[in-house]
Design a protein around this nucleic acid. Structure first.
Length: 819
DNA sequence: AGCACGCCGACT
DNA sequence: GTCGGCGTGCTC
């Protein structure tokens, strides 16, 4: 019989990041399981906190005092066995605490809060100071009991001493209380419970001047079942009349789970799509893998428009037939109603959708639908991977090259790696889909770690759109100083004449990318970040795209005092303006972060464009994601080599991906498409191969560079960024980090440290008043495990001894960018 | 992270 | 003498 539980405590501290042993009381011995969330008391003051059972044992395994588990907090374990394994693995892999990893898995909307209460227990006291008297009076005024938090906000921190003194005098008592919050949303249905004649009842209520109640009865006579909130708003009444009717027994109130509320979904007419040979072949392989017990992940490399989604949907159908759940991950910006509708049309109500716009209550509702087996297909951004499926069959990561699959907060996990871990445990079929797979992942497919499935043809059998390259240096030589090359200008013009639609892409919002003084060259920068300010014309403000800082555009140079201030560089706003200038009758829409901030505005713009209420759509990378417009025959890429200017080892890959994705928007239906790519660095291999739609050649070039410069997949990289308000302190701390790493490596007999880069200021050296310095470590000569161990030891276990308190340490294993 | 213990200087 | 400041170490 297991009498002891090893528990992770939710104590928000890196010092308690270990298993604590608690005794399981008799009454819970048959209840507690691994993964249960339990209530325990912790620390000297027996603070009630939640804990997670990670292990159980008949012995306590050591010499220490043990406390008892107070109770279980949920009927069923909140973590599955595989989640416990996953948490342990993530903690090692991404150098984080148990709780950091648990927080990825357990749903928002559940939480346990605690607070300390002071209670007045005796009124017999003497020799009381005036401060003490004030405190006693305050507590008396609050029914002899108060939260200490409240007293601290009222009187300040020093009140704690007064409380303690009164506690010693046995005037006050201190104890903890807690509240277990489960954000479960219910709806309440009311229905009539009247046996006698209803009209008689209405009359008698009216006689008693209970007009509102009579109204409710009359309403329910016509509407058998109604939701309480609807009744209240329709009849403009309050809950009290409903309550008194219930008390009298005339109506029933029924509490229903919110998610059982029938949803009124719109259905789009379903086209029956026939799969082509390639799709059929892919589907055959994927379907048969579901039952396979010895499978590896699949890399589905399909060109844009090759119909990957149809393959996904049919694979999921197969899983459903076998009674298995599926998870579909998409980048956050692809979580549009269009995507969701496409799946809903195929699968109806058994879909759960997770996205960032849901409230924590709504997220919890979806969570429960999955957990209770009511939803069998989960669609969402990366966090949906942790959904509590009962029997997982398929995991799909669509557009898996997207940066958003790497978490940006602690733990900085890679969705790809976590998915592999989960798929292995659950024996799920794992599909990575993309037209432009990440180089390191494609390499793994080449090495046989993944099975490569290729869709080389577009589903509609159309050719890939032809990409014409325009060298903007030549345009300038020819005297064209505008932002449109003559070829793009002509193409837009003829497209307008032929009544076809055009997409113009530029991956920068705002009007101008920087503002500078033409006399002295001074560039306006954000006062919080080391970032040039972007000029936004409509509001005439200079904005920082990192921290949101904005100020009125200055007309005078703060450095030399001249008035020659000018905006340089391009932004989507400027494109929109130029279009309106050159093509007066063209109807233009712009889609970027500035025009899509309002809820639903994203869909509105897309629908407008889809319904051909506009001729030209100008946008940032938002328009590159899975959009399917039949009448788009021209795509203009304005600054195709912009990504190449970013000093990051993935910049070539990003440039290739962006061009491929955006170009893929052209000619998706019956009309042939064309792409015009404007760039300066037109001989760059990323541009050249993108123009030829030749991923393999790009891969072959890029993989050599990765190997030559020791980047992934050949070598791993760990980035440690130290940031803080005080620059000197940050530099001092990063140096200590460097010295500590070197010291520990020397102890292991390493004497050369070329594989440690830095410390250097980050490329973005300041964000939000925080100075940022970085050390990059590659596992050239040293095992990655040892490096992780050393960094964990320095940054987590010995953090207090080595670093100042007011600095932040961010550890990223194989970061997606090193900015 | 909290919280208690404990050591030390500044006040009635 | 004791009030109150913060440095140190522990939490099953």
């Amino acid at each position: 019989m297991e009498k002891y539980a090893k528990i992770i405590v939710n104590n928000n501290s890196s010092h308690t990041d270990e298993l604590y042993t608690y005794k399981i009381p008799e009454f819970l011995i048959d209840e507690v399981q691994i993964g249960h969330r339990v209530l325990i008391s912790f620390g000297r003051t027996n603070k009630p906190i939640e804990g997670f059972v990670f292990d159980m044992s008949p012995n306590k395994d050591g010499d220490f005092r043990v406390k008892e588990v107070v109770d279980i907090l949920d009927k069923d374990p909140i973590l599955k066995k595989r989640d416990v394994e996953l948490v342990k693995w993530m903690r090692e892999e991404y150098i984080c605490t148990f709780m950091d990893a648990i927080n990825c898995i357990y749903p928002k909307g559940i939480r346990l809060t605690n607070y300390k209460i002071v209670k007045l227990i005796s009124c017999e006291y003497d020799s009381i100071s005036s401060k003490e008297q004030i405190l006693i009076d305050e507590i008396k005024n609050n029914k002899n009991e108060m939260k200490i938090d409240k007293l601290v906000t009222k009187f300040g921190k020093s009140i704690n001493n007064t409380i303690k003194k009164l506690k010693d005098k046995r005037v006050l008592d201190i104890h903890w209380e807690y509240k277990s919050i489960k954000n479960e949303k219910y709806i309440q249905n009311i229905s009539l419970n009247v046996e006698s004649d209803i009209d008689d009842l209405i009359e008698s209520l009216n006689k008693k001047r209970a007009f509102k109640q009579a109204e409710i009865i009359r309403f329910l006579k016509d509407n058998k079942n109604a939701e309480i909130n609807d009744v209240m708003s329709i009849l403009s009444i309050t809950k009290s009349s409903i309550n008194s009717l219930e008390k009298k027994g005339y109506i029933n109130i029924q509490k229903l789970d919110y998610y059982r509320k029938p949803k009124s979904d719109y259905i789009i007419k379903q086209k029956n799509i026939d799969l082509n040979d390639e799709q059929m072949e892919a589907l055959k392989i994927l379907k048969s893998s579901i039952d396979d017990y010895n499978k590896i992940p699949f890399l589905l490399h399909g060109v844009t428009g090759s119909g990957k989604t149809e393959v996904y949907i049919n694979t999921i159908k197969e899983a459903l037939i076998k009674g298995l759940d599926s998870i579909v991950l998409v980048p956050e910006i692809s979580l549009t109603p269009q995507t969701i509708a496409r799946f809903k049309n195929n699968f109806g109500d058994i879909i759960a959708v997770f996205h960032s716009k849901l409230s924590s209550g709504e997220k919890y509702d979806e969570y429960r639908r999955v957990k209770e087996g009511k939803a069998k297909i989960i669609i969402g951004a990366r966090s949906a991977l942790f959904a509590p499926c009962n029997n997982l069959g398929v995991i799909i990561i669509d557009e898996f090259h997207e940066n958003s699959y790497k978490s940006d907060s602690n733990p900085k996990y890679s969705t790809i790696e976590v998915a592999k871990f989960i798929a292995t445990i659950e024996n799920a079929t794992l599909i990575f889909g993309s037209a432009t797979p990440p180089i390191e992942e494609y390499y793994k497919a080449q090495m046989g770690e993944y099975e490569l499935i290729e869709l080389k043809k577009r589903a509609n059998n159309k050719e890939m759109p032809k990409i014409e390259v325009v060298d903007m240096r030549e345009e300038l030589d020819k005297g064209n100083k505008t932002i449109f090359s003559s070829r793009l200008y002509e193409a837009i013009k003829s497209n307008l004449e032929n009544n076809n639609q055009t997409i113009l892409f530029l991956n920068r919002r705002g009007y101008a990318s920087f503002i500078s003084c033409r006399k002295c060259g001074y560039t306006f920068k954000c006062s919080n970040c080391e970032i040039s300010l972007t000029y936004h014309k409509g509001i005439n403000k200079a904005k920082c795209h990192y921290c949101g800082f904005e100020e009125r555009k200055l007309s005078e140079c703060p450095s030399c005092g001249s008035n020659y201030i000018k905006e340089f560089g391009l932004g989507t706003q400027r494109i929109e303006e130029e279009i309106k200038k050159y093509f007066k009758d063209a109807r233009v829409l712009r889609m970027d972060k500035d025009t899509t901030s309002k809820k639903g505005s994203h869909e509105k713009i897309l629908n407008e464009f889809k319904n051909r209420n506009a001729d030209i759509l100008v946008g940032t990378q938002m328009i590159g994601k899975g959009l399917d417009f039949e009448h788009v025959t021209l795509v203009g890429i304005l600054c195709g080599d912009m990504a190449l200017k970013i000093p990051d080892f993935r910049s070539s890959e990003k440039a290739f991906q962006t061009i491929s994705q955006v170009a893929g928007r052209s000619g998706r239906a019956d009309l042939n498409g064309k792409v015009i790519l404007q760039a300066y660095d037109i001989d760059h291999y990323a541009i050249k191969h993108a123009v030829e739609h030749d991923f393999k050649s790009f891969y072959n070039d890029e993989i050599k560079i990765r190997q030559a410069f020791n980047y992934v997949p050949f070598d791993n990289m760990i980035s440690v960024v130290i940031s803080g308000k005080n620059e000197k302190k940050v530099i001092n701390n990063i140096q200590k980090l460097y010295d500590s790493i070197v010291y520990l490596l020397r102890k292991k007999n390493y004497n050369s440290f070329d594989f440690i880069l830095g410390p250097n200021p980050c490329i973005v050296s300041k964000i939000n008043q925080n100075y940022r310095w970085q050390i990059l470590v590659k596992d050239l000569d040293v095992e990655i495990k040892l490096l992780k161990g050393i960094i964990k030891y320095i940054c987590i276990q010995k953090r207090e001894f080595i670093f100042d308190k007011d600095i932040n340490i961010s550890i990223d294993i194989n970061p997606v960018n090193i900015l």
